[in-house]
């Protein structure tokens, strides 16, 4: 039963995307040039991390687990009180001490998408934050794929454009030689370009943090360690100079 419903909702998504692409009117002025750029996210920005966590739980966690990550750690690091964390992060009925797992069985995922959605705990370390940022920006309509969309960063991505209701739908434009120029919005989403850009950056920021939760603390501690070693080295230099006065 559940399976049929999911299948239906997926085909509904494809239908909507197809409908959107039907309404395409070529307008060269509307083409925005696009090329990959840096994410410029800031893992010390707590508000951004909290927003990113919420977006992730609502839009990504349906398919993508964070299997090496505990809800509790997210709540602690993002300074979320326990009740808020339970309500906003672990709303699937998990305990805070649990790892962030998904309910979708991998076999079903393979059935629906051709492959199980990868775990994203370490995606910011293997692909890098910039890649995720550009990936989430560059879905475009492509009738030849099962999902109805394709992606500039990952050709023939099995993943559909999950954030389409936020970003809207865009079409890729190419010049006469067939090289990519940019995107044209063919269906507005709920967010403006700026709002969507911020949303994507928040998600990237959250994933960057999840990839290496210690990174902010690590730099803070590192400063004091180096300061200590600096003093130690200076004193040992004075000791050395003193001992070596009589050599030669």
């Amino acid at each position: 039963m559940m399976r049929t419903i999911r299948k239906l909702s997926l085909s509904a998504l494809v239908l909507v995307i197809a409908a959107g692409s039907g309404a395409v009117i070529a307008d060269e002025d509307a083409v925005r040039e696009w090329r990959p750029s840096a994410a410029n996210n800031d893992v010390t920005n707590l508000a951004s991390l909290q927003r990113g966590a919420r977006y992730y739980m609502n839009y990504c966690l349906g398919c993508h687990s964070l299997e090496y990550k505990r809800y509790q750690r997210i709540a602690d690091d993002l300074e979320l009180p326990e009740d808020l964390a339970l309500e906003n992060l672990a709303f699937t009925g998990d305990e805070l001490a649990d790892m962030v797992k998904i309910a979708m069985p991998p076999e079903d995922a393979e059935d629906w998408f051709g492959m199980a959605a990868p775990d994203l705990t370490l995606v910011s370390r293997s692909r890098g934050p910039d890649w995720i940022y550009n990936f989430l920006h560059s879905f475009y309509i492509d009738d030849r794929t099962v999902a109805g969309t394709n992606n500039r960063m990952l050709d023939n991505a099995a993943m559909p454009h999950v954030l389409w209701s936020l970003q809207g739908l865009q079409k890729a434009h190419y010049d006469e030689e067939g090289s990519f120029v940019g995107f044209e919005t063919v269906r507005e989403g709920r967010m403006s370009h700026e709002e969507y850009d911020r949303t994507v950056r928040d998600i990237v920021n959250f994933l960057d943090y999840v990839g290496e939760p210690i990174q902010t603390d690590r730099k803070r501690i590192g400063f004091w360690v180096l300061a200590f070693i600096g003093v130690f080295t200076f004193l040992s230099y004075l000791l050395y100079k003193d001992y070596w006065r009589d050599v030669k």
Partner: peptide, 28 residues
């Protein structure tokens, strides 16, 4: 010159400089 104390105190300076580089990488 006797290895200790001359080169022990000198090597400690080297250890300090090395650890600074080492931990700069580890932490940053």
């Amino acid at each position: 010159i006797p290895f200790h104390p001359y080169y022990t105190v000198k090597d400690i300076v080297g250890v300090g400089v090395f650890l600074a580089l080492f931990f700069a990488i580890v932490f940053f």
